[in-house]
């Protein structure tokens, strides 16, 4: 096996604008970005609420949430599979083996990461801003919004961590998506498939393309972030 061959293959794939590859890349981005947005819409308010509220058992919830950051993708995939299976409670939706199922599974996978990291960010900000915001008579939801917005640069990192996890995982999308050619085949399941076929150069080539895409997205957000940071202090 030859790294040079892998790089050549990767370059060939990119330069060739292979229609199938473009479809796979597009689906991967669609699934992972949608999952991350879904997870952020739930996870950011959830993290803020956990940071700002006090109730019995809160410590246990925080520990559990932190532990769930390491949820095995296969387990999440299996759970979502059972949920979405025809024989399962959400079976009638007919979501199994569709991108929708993959989005759901990845959102579940990413939610604890976003919620746990944003809880930490908001809790730290609360230590700094708490007195001032109470002095300004902010209501709890106003505090949450203010701190989420003021923590936006750190939270982008949390969301990116979630995106990285979603884009990189294979176990969950393999199970609930089924790696169906042209329908639910993503970068990672395609890599797994090519590895299975023993075409290691193609698999690694696809992997390089995936890494390049993730790096490009991170780079773009980083550039956007530093620009925004310069203008917001």
């Amino acid at each position: 096996m030859d790294l040079v061959a892998a790089f050549t293959t990767a370059l060939g794939l990119v330069a060739g604008f292979d229609a199938e590859l473009l479809g796979i890349v597009r689906l991967s981005l669609l699934v992972s970005l949608s999952a991350v947005i879904l997870a952020a819409l739930v996870g950011l308010p959830l993290g803020a609420a956990l940071a700002l509220s006090r109730f019995p058992g809160r410590g246990a919830v925080v520990v559990l949430l932190n532990a769930f950051m390491g949820l095995p993708p296969v387990v999440v995939g299996l759970g979502v599979y059972i949920l979405l299976s025809r024989a399962g409670p959400l079976g009638p939706l007919g979501l199994l083996f569709t991108p929708g199922a993959m989005i759901l599974a990845q959102a579940v996978l990413v939610l604890p990461i976003i919620a746990a990291l944003s809880r930490q960010v908001v809790a730290d900000l609360w230590d700094e801003y708490g007195e001032q915001l109470r002095s300004l008579n902010a209501r709890p939801w106003q505090v949450a919004l203010t701190l989420l917005w003021d923590g936006r640069f750190s939270l982008v990192t949390a969301v990116l961590a979630g995106f990285g996890r979603a884009a990189a995982e294979v176990g969950a999308v393999m199970i609930v998506g089924g790696n169906i050619k042209g329908v639910t085949r993503t970068m990672t399941t395609a890599i797994a498939l090519e590895t299975s076929k023993g075409d290691l150069a193609l698999a690694l080539g696809l992997g390089l393309v995936l890494i390049a895409i993730i790096a490009a997205i991170n780079g773009a957000l980083f550039a956007l972030g530093s620009w925004a940071k310069r203008s917001a202090g």
Partner: peptide, 22 residues
């Protein structure tokens, strides 16, 4: 306060934020 706690936004937006809360 002794150390002003200001939000990560413009000076005007900091004042507007307080007004919104009021």
């Amino acid at each position: 306060f002794q150390r002003p706690v200001l939000l990560r936004r413009s000076a005007a937006a900091n004042v507007r934020h307080a007004l919104a809360l009021a």
